[in-house]
Design a protein around this nucleic acid. Structure first.
Lengths: 345, 345
DNA sequence: GTGAAAGCGCTAACAC
DNA sequence: GTGTTAGCGCTTTCAC
C-alpha cells in the first residue's frame, strides 16, 4: 500500500523490456512481438499499473476529452442529448465534461475557457449561438478546437450544426390534422423564436398542399415556451366566439398549459378539440396521453458527437461548416381525433 | 493563426520575467510583487495565452477533475444529483466527468478504470454497492482516490455515504395519513430493496406512536420500482373485498401505476382512496397532482461533493467513512384527503 | 521577490 | 522488433 506511483518504467523493468516497448505494448500501436506484448501486459497487471492519460495528453498535446455545454442537465431534453454524446464518445475512448450555463453569457464564457484550459479535443454546445458564444467559438477555433452546434440554431455559424428538421416535422403533424378533417386549426408559437418560425413554415406547407390557407387569427404568439405561457394564451383563445377544432402547440410545456386551460374551461380533449405537442418527453404520462411530435434527442446527441469526431480524428478541421438534419417523428396518442368526432357532439 | 502553442515560457518572455515568476503570477500563489503580477497577466492576455491544466496535472500529480458514476443521466432523479455535484465542483474549479453504467457491472468496472486512468481526484457513485463496485472502490482507494456513495445504500462500506433519511421521511408521511384519520393504509414496497425496508420501518414507527399496528395483509411487495409493477400490484389489491382508504407507494413510478389502476377500476383519488408517492419529480404534473415525499436530490449531490472535497483537499483520506443523512420533505397536493371525505360518500 | 533547473509519466523519432 | 533519449508545459525546491 505504498504511495509510490507505478509508472511505465516500473512495468518495463518488471517485464524486462525498455520503456519504449512497454509504451508500445500498453498503448497497442507500433510493432511489438505478440510474446513481448503479453509479457508487458502481465507485468502491468502484476504490479497494479494504471495507465496515466494525463501524461499521454501532455506528451501528445491532445486529450481524450470533449466538452458539452448545455443550459441545464436537469432538463430531460438535454439529458437525452447528453446521453447520446456520452455513448458515442465513450465508444471512442473519450470522456465528456458536461457544463451547465443556465443560459447565462458570463457562465458561457467561463466554461468555454475552462474547456480550453482542460485542452478538450472538441466542444458541443446546445445553447443559442449569440455574440458571447460566437466570440468563444472564435477563440476555440484559433486554438484548434472544433465545435458543433447541437440543436442550438440553424443560423449559419462557425460550427458544424446538427438539429432536427422542424419544418418537415411540423409539415407531417399538420398534414395529419388536415387528413383528420380539421381546418379550423390554431397554432401556438413563441414570439421571436427562430425555431417557431421554421415550424410555422412546415405548417403552412401542409396547408398549401391541401389548397388551403392558414387563418392568421389562429396563429397565437406566446411569450416563451413555458407552461404558464401556454395556459395564458389558451385561455385567451378559448374565450373567443368559437374554439378551433385542433391546436398545435410548439412545445410540450405549452401543450401542458393548454391542457390545463382546456380542463378549466370544460373543453374535453380530444372530443371538443384535438391537441398536438412537440418534444415528447412526458407526453405519454399526461391526461390524456398527448399526440406529439418527437425530437430524436438521443440520436441528435449521437450525431453531434459523430460530426465532432470527424473533425477531431480526421483532422479535417478546415473544411466548411456542415449542417445535418434529423427527422422528427409524429407519435399519435389519445389527444387527437378526426373532425367527425367533434361534429357529432 | 499560427499553430505554435503559446506556453508559459512565451508569457515570461513577453513580460520580461522568468518562467518561475510567470508561473507564480498565473497560478496566483507564492510571492510575486503586485506590479510584476500585473505585467505577467497583461502579457498573457496580449499573446492569447491559455493555461494548460494538463501540464499542471502531470507536474502536481493531481487533476482538477472528479468522476460521477450513475445509472443513467436521463433519469431526472440522478440528473438533479449530478447538477448538485457539478455546481459544487465548479465552485472549486473542478470539472466533473459523468459516466452512465446502466446498472451493468462490466461497465462499472470499465468506467472506474477510466476514472483512474484519467487520474480523477475523487469519485462519487449513485449505484448499488455490490461486489463489482466494492472491488473497484478498493482499487481506487489503493490509488489514493477517495469515493463517496451517494444515495447508493447506507450499508457500511468503504466510502463516505450520503443519503436521504428515508425512515424519517416515511415516518412523517405516515403520521400525516394517520392524522387525517386513515387506519386502513396500504404500503406498496419493493421486494428485497434495502431502502424499501427502511421506509417501512418509518411507517411502522408512526403506527406505533399512534398505539396501532400495521396490517401485514396491506403491505404489498412489488417486483421493482416501475410503473408496470405498481399497476399490477394495485390491480391485485383493488380486487380484494374492501380497498384501503389510503395507499403509500415507495416510488413515483409505482404511484403512477397505482393511479392508472385506480382510474381503470373507477376508484377516484382522493375521494375513494388517498395516495402518496415518493421522489416528487413530476408529481405536480399528474392527475390529480400527487402528494409526495420529496428527496432533496440537488442537495444530496451538493453534500456528496462537499464530503468528497473534504477528503480531496484536506487530505484526511484516512479517517473512517462517514454517513450523512438529508431530510426528506412531504409536499401535500391533491391526492390525499381526510378520512371523513371517504366516509361521507 | 525572482530565477535556474530538475523532472512529473509518457511518446516518438531515430538508431540499432 | 526493440532501445535510447529528448522533450510535452508546467511546478517547485533552492540559490541569490
Amino acid at each position: 500500500m505504498k504511495d509510490k506511483i507505478v509508472t511505465i518504467k516500473d512495468v518495463a523493468f518488471e517485464a524486462g523490456v525498455s520503456v519504449a516497448t512497454a509504451s508500445r505494448a500498453l498503448a497497442g500501436y507500433g510493432y511489438v512481438k505478440e510474446n513481448t506484448r503479453r509479457k508487458v501486459l502481465e507485468a502491468a497487471k502484476k504490479i497494479d499499473y494504471h495507465y496515466n492519460l494525463v501524461a499521454k495528453s501532455l506528451r501528445t498535446n491532445k486529450t481524450q476529452t470533449i466538452g458539452y455545454l448545455l443550459p441545464d442537465i436537469t432538463n430531460p431534453f438535454f439529458a437525452d442529448i447528453a446521453r447520446g454524446i456520452q455513448d458515442f464518445a465513450f465508444s471512442r475512448g473519450y470522456t465528456v465534461i458536461i457544463c451547465n450555463n443556465d443560459n447565462d453569457n458570463i457562465k458561457t464564457q467561463l466554461l468555454m475557457k475552462m474547456f480550453i484550459r482542460n485542452r478538450v479535443g472538441g466542444i458541443i454546445y446546445s445553447t443559442p449561438y449569440n455574440d458571447a458564444l460566437k466570440q468563444m467559438v472564435e477563440t476555440t477555433r484559433k486554438n484548434g478546437i472544433p465545435t458543433v452546434n447541437c440543436y442550438g440554431s440553424t443560423r449559419i455559424n462557425a460550427s458544424d450544426v446538427i438539429t432536427a428538421d422542424a419544418t418537415m416535422g411540423c409539415y407531417k403533424a399538420m398534414k395529419y390534422l388536415l387528413e383528420l378533417g380539421h381546418r379550423h386549426i390554431a397554432i401556438l408559437k413563441v414570439r421571436g423564436s427562430g425555431i417557431s418560425k421554421r415550424r410555422l413554415e412546415g405548417c403552412k406547407k401542409a396547408f398549401t398542399e391541401f389548397g388551403l390557407e392558414m387563418n392568421p387569427d389562429l396563429i397565437v404568439e406566446a411569450d416563451d415556451f413555458t407552461q404558464r405561457s401556454g395556459f395564458r394564451s389558451a385561455k385567451l383563445l378559448f374565450n373567443q366566439p368559437n374554439i378551433p377544432s385542433a391546436l398545435f402547440a410548439f412545445s410540450e410545456q405549452l401543450a401542458m398549459g393548454v391542457l390545463k386551460a382546456a380542463k378549466s374551461e370544460g373543453i374535453a380533449i380530444p372530443r371538443d378539440m384535438s391537441l398536438i405537442g412537440v418534444d415528447d418527453m412526458i407526453a405519454d404520462l399526461l391526461d390524456p396521453p398527448l399526440t406529439s411530435l418527437s425530437i430524436p434527442t438521443y440520436e441528435v446527441g449521437h450525431a453531434a458527437a459523430s460530426l465532432l469526431f470527424d473533425r477531431i480524428e480526421k483532422r479535417k478541421n478546415d473544411s466548411p461548416p456542415r449542417c445535418m438534419l434529423m427527422d422528427e417523428t409524429l407519435t399519435v396518442r389519445d389527444s387527437t381525433g378526426s373532425l367527425r368526432t367533434a361534429i357529432s357532439l
